[in-house]
Nucleic acid binder design. Structure first.
Lengths: 204, 204
DNA sequence: TGCATTTTAAATCGACCGTTATAAAACCAA
DNA sequence: TTGGTTTTATAACGGTCGATTTAAAATGCA
């Protein structure tokens, strides 16, 4: 009935991800965005609505490609090895990032989410999913004896979530292998079941 | 010989910190900034140079007030208690932040530093100082027997740095006490010397 | 082949950006 | 009081922002 699109929506969204990922939301103008996507500003508005909507779609695509794909790849592995492989992959990804783009979700958590309720919910929701993945791994590992029982699965998963976010931030200003590899070593030791470690006294 | 300033430089810089801390660099316009500082834009430029210079001064002031003051307060304490108090204070600070401003240094690490070499160095330098504080605490604690020797002081300090940054990010989208308190518990256990924990095999 | 519809391209909208020019106001040494 | 100097307040600069208007180009259906 009408003139068809000259572009593939998902393909140009991938280009939008690159732009937003590298420069952030505010520093990316509609003109930057349109150029990166190979479109005119009118086409961007026609296809997606406004800048915020493009960012939302781009963030969703990023999360699908980055988190859920990775979780899916590791979910079937033995739980302890899944966690170790997960973090090693994050470290390699962080070190092999010369532009220091970091993690787009973390970037969004700090730049966009605090001033936008919808993005607050989106980011929080993804972090909950990541925490649940960690919890599943720890619970299974505690059942099959490959992960220590000296901390609850819930707490260990929370620690892993914190470490994950910490790595993502730290690597962006200090992408040093000895730092990230050293950082993760005590965390892996924490998972280790070959220990008589007691829960430390909780001093508040 | 001339007309004196009507404002105190440090006092208006504290107001600039508030503004930049809450809204970030890009989202704070010179007009926002001048209004927050109680000055005209001309006075801002006359006193500080340009927007970037104000941000630089504000970040320096924030770091002095937040990090170095805190480190100074804890440096004389018993090392293990210093670390525990440090993190408990960070958690309280993160939970008692209804505007979700987070940590201005972390915000700067993600928004400004990646695209500005000078700020990259500034932020990295502060993180090195924090890491050194952690290292000193862990080393002293390992010497006096209050901190486990199963991990090197360097690695434990790196883990603590990672956890610190993770808390700061996580609290900004999920400021939940059970999450932060639970997250830190295994980390404190990691410091605990009452353990026969072995270093976990490093699987890469 | 037209007609209706959508996507393009280009120009443009008012608003705001960082920054600066201008000149009045406020001070101190003389 | 005057002259020299700096800070103020106001207004404005050119540029870019997000978003839209206009009209030409491109389709599928009648």
């Amino acid at each position: 009935m009408a003139r068809p699109r000259e572009f593939d929506e998902e393909r140009v969204l991938e280009l939008a991800v690159q732009q937003f990922w590298e420069r952030g939301y505010k520093a990316t103008s509609i003109r930057d965005l349109a150029q990166a996507m190979g479109l005119t500003t009118a086409s961007v508005y026609n296809a997606f609505g406004d800048k915020r909507a493009v960012y939302r779609r781009a963030l969703d695509l990023y999360v699908d490609r980055s988190f859920y794909d990775r979780v899916g790849r590791f979910e079937s592995k033995p739980p302890r090895q899944a966690l170790i492989a997960f973090f090693n992959e994050i470290i390699e990804r962080s070190l092999g990032d010369p532009r220091r783009k970091g993690c787009m979700l973390v970037n969004s958590a700090l730049e966009v989410a605090p001033h936008d309720e919808e993005f607050q919910h989106v980011v929080a929701g993804v972090l909950v999913q990541v925490e649940r993945f960690f919890t599943r791994c720890v619970e299974q590992g505690q059942q099959d004896g490959t992960i220590s029982r000296h901390q609850t699965a819930a707490d260990l998963a929370r620690t892993l979530l914190g470490i994950l976010l910490g790595i993502r931030v730290l690597a962006r200003t200090r992408p040093e292998r000895h730092l990230l590899d050293g950082l993760i070593k005590p965390v892996f030791a924490l998972l280790d079941p070959d220990t008589a470690m007691q829960a430390g006294p909780s001093i508040s």
